[in-house]
Amino acid sequence: MRIGVMGTGAMAAALGGAWARAGHEVFVGGRDGAAAAALAGRIGAAGHGSPAAAAAYGEVALLAVPAGEAPALAREHAAALAGRTVVDCTNPLEPGPGGVMLSIAPGRSVAALIGAAAPGAHVVKAFNLAHSSVWERPAGAFGAVPPAVPFCADDAGAAGRVVELITGMGWSPMPAGGLDRAAYVEATAAFAIGVWWAGGSPRLAFPEALA
Rank of each mutant, 00 (worst) to 15 (best):
D88V: 07
V87Y: 02
A158S: 09
A148V: 14
K125H: 12
I166R: 00
M169R: 00
H122V: 04
W197M: 15
A82T: 13
G143W: 07
H122M: 11
A80R: 14
G99Y: 10
W196T: 10
C152F: 01
A159D: 04
V185T: 09
A189H: 03
R108H: 12
C152K: 06
V134Q: 12
A148Y: 06
A139Y: 10
P147N: 05
A192D: 03
P95V: 02
D180M: 01
F127G: 07
A176R: 07
V124N: 11
A121E: 12
F151V: 01
V124I: 13
T188F: 13
D180S: 14
G199F: 01
P173R: 02
A190Q: 04
A118E: 08
A82C: 10
H77F: 09
V163K: 02
F151D: 08
H131W: 14
G143Q: 07
S109K: 00
W135I: 03
I104T: 09
A144Y: 03
V123R: 09
A78C: 08
V195S: 05
W135F: 15
L113W: 10
V162R: 04
M169H: 02
L113Q: 15
V149Y: 09
F127Y: 13
V163E: 13
A112C: 11
A80M: 07
R161C: 04
A80L: 14
V86L: 13
A82L: 07
A111E: 06
A82W: 11
A187T: 04
A111L: 03
I114M: 08
R181A: 15
G157D: 09
A158W: 01
A148N: 02
D180Q: 14
A159I: 03
L179D: 10
A189R: 06
A116N: 11
A121W: 13
G98H: 14
P173W: 05
A156I: 01
W135T: 00
G160T: 06
C152D: 01
G194M: 06
G178V: 03
A182Y: 06
A176C: 11
L93E: 02
S103F: 08
G168V: 12
G120M: 13
V145P: 03
G168W: 03
V124A: 13
A156R: 13
A156F: 09
S132P: 08
R108T: 12
A126P: 14
P146T: 11
R181K: 15
R84Y: 06
G107N: 03
N128A: 11
C152T: 01
E94Y: 05
A187W: 00
A118D: 11
A189S: 12
A78H: 07
P146M: 09
G160F: 01
M101C: 14
S172I: 01
C152Q: 11
V123P: 01
L93R: 04
V100S: 00
E164Q: 13
M174N: 12
A187R: 10
G107Y: 04
G99V: 08
L102S: 12
D180V: 07
N128W: 10
S172E: 14
A192M: 14
A126M: 10
